[in-house]
């Protein structure tokens, strides 16, 4: 599994397309059989889930895409703080399981773990 990170609009999807995955390969349902899970950040915000169960489903994917949401001022709302931290901690665990981690910066893929 390759974990693809980066800010909103940093070029994560275009990068995954460049690896040979077409739009039809993308899904936002972790239990779908399509190879690319896109939008882990939005999924966590919208679906209160058991992180263990989610992790088990996601490690089976070819690619997991998640926006980095942990920077900036600590949000006033508790739910926003919990959300940021949940996304961050799940990414730490996914990165550990991943064969490669790629971070997009202004459209440039920076490989921070393994090889792609």
């Amino acid at each position: 599994m390759i974990l693809v990170l980066g800010g909103v609009g940093a070029g994560k999807k275009a990068y995954v397309n460049s690896l040979g995955y077409e739009d039809a390969d993308f899904t936002s349902d972790p239990n779908d059989r399509k190879p690319v899970f896109a939008g882990l950040d939005a999924y966590i915000r919208e679906n209160p889930t058991d992180p263990e169960e989610l992790l088990r489903a996601l490690v089976k994917k070819d690619v997991v895409i998640c926006a980095e949401v942990g920077s900036g001022v600590i949000p006033l709302e508790r739910a926003d703080r919990v959300y940021r931290e949940t996304v961050g901690r799940l990414c730490v665990r996914l990165a550990k399981e991943a064969t490669a981690v790629v971070r997009l910066v202004a459209g440039i893929p920076v490989v921070i773990k393994g090889n792609v």
């Binding site: 980095e68 942990g70 600590i74 931290e85 961050g88 730490v92």
Partner: peptide, 8 residues
């Protein structure tokens, strides 16, 4: 440095 929950 690093964002929230990144393992700092």
């Amino acid at each position: 440095t690093g964002g929230s929950g990144c393992g700092k």
